[in-house]
């Protein structure tokens, strides 16, 4: 965490991209995010890990304001999150999101899924948008499926299309909320490989996942959450081989022994 606070001059081009300061959120009586402080530098890959119900999804969703917060501050690329309207829509376009359940638009073809945001939000002309869509679909290995509907694809293919759909917006940061949890085991790797390539290409990524292989090979940092709090943060090696908190030790022993 110490090297994150860099000289002011660097901030614009290389510094902090996503900053959360004492963020709190309740669902009724449930204090789901408790004083969350988290800073993610440009180009950094952060894996968020923790028991089910600890608030990982909620954390992701507050970053593009799919969930509002009760107190605290969130800023992206130096600008605080807008509250509503056009400003917020523009911010969301800069933050790519990949969901556990893919959420591809069921009534649109794969190609249309990847062009929709470019045309309607980025106001690109259709030809350019389709060109970019095809390039991205090729990159994630589903170029041949461009004219099919999502329901005709396997889960792994759908998730790769979802990644292409998010990338089409040229986002500054990508959020992944358990992108492989809904997949059959044999399809997990094809999605992780796409994500690893993305990390190597320098994309800033926040990834909620329990895939330790991915965390070890692609992440700069692991953030461990429990009961709405960040309990500890460390490099993947440190965290997995030598966790400091009891909660983390307990959690790791559960996911390691099966």
């Amino acid at each position: 965490m110490t090297e994150v606070s860099m000289a002011k001059e660097d901030v614009a081009s290389t510094g902090d991209l996503v900053v959360l300061k004492s963020v709190n959120k309740h669902f009724g009586a449930l204090h789901v995010l408790q004083d969350i402080d988290l800073t993610i530098a440009r180009g950094e890959v952060v894996v968020v890990i923790g028991p089910s119900g600890s608030g990982k999804s909620t954390l992701c969703r507050t970053i593009n304001r799919l969930e509002t917060i009760d107190s605290g501050e969130i800023s992206i690329d130096g600008r605080p999150l807008p509250h509503e309207g056009k400003e917020l829509a523009r911010l969301r376009a800069d933050v790519g999101m990949v969901f556990q359940s893919f959420n591809l638009f069921a009534h649109k073809t794969v190609l249309e899924n990847v062009t929709l945001g470019q045309v309607k939000v980025r106001r690109k002309d259709r030809k350019q948008a389709e060109e970019r869509a095809r390039t991205l679909l090729d990159r994630v290995g589903v170029g041949a499926q461009a004219d099919k509907y999502p329901a005709q694809l396997s889960g792994g293919q759908q998730q790769r299309v979802a990644i292409a759909r998010a990338l089409a917006m040229e986002p500054k940061v990508m959020l992944f909320d358990e992108p492989t949890s809904a997949l059959d085991p044999e399809m997990i790797n094809e999605v992780l490989e796409v994500m690893q390539q993305l990390a190597r290409d320098g994309m800033t990524m926040i990834v909620v996942t329990h895939e330790m292989g991915f965390a070890r090979s692609a992440a700069n940092r692991v953030v461990f959450m429990a009961d709405g709090r960040i309990i500890e943060q460390a490099t993947p090696d440190q965290f997995f081989s030598n966790p400091r908190s009891d909660r983390a030790k307990d959690f790791l022993s559960k996911i390691l022994h099966h």
Binding site: L66, R92, D94, F99, N103, F105, L116, G117
Partner: peptide, 15 residues
């Protein structure tokens, strides 16, 4: 229509 459809659309920046 599953809520995820609208969420994915909002996440793209659609109004």
């Amino acid at each position: 229509v599953p809520v995820g459809q609208a969420e994915a659309a909002r996440a793209l920046g659609l109004s």
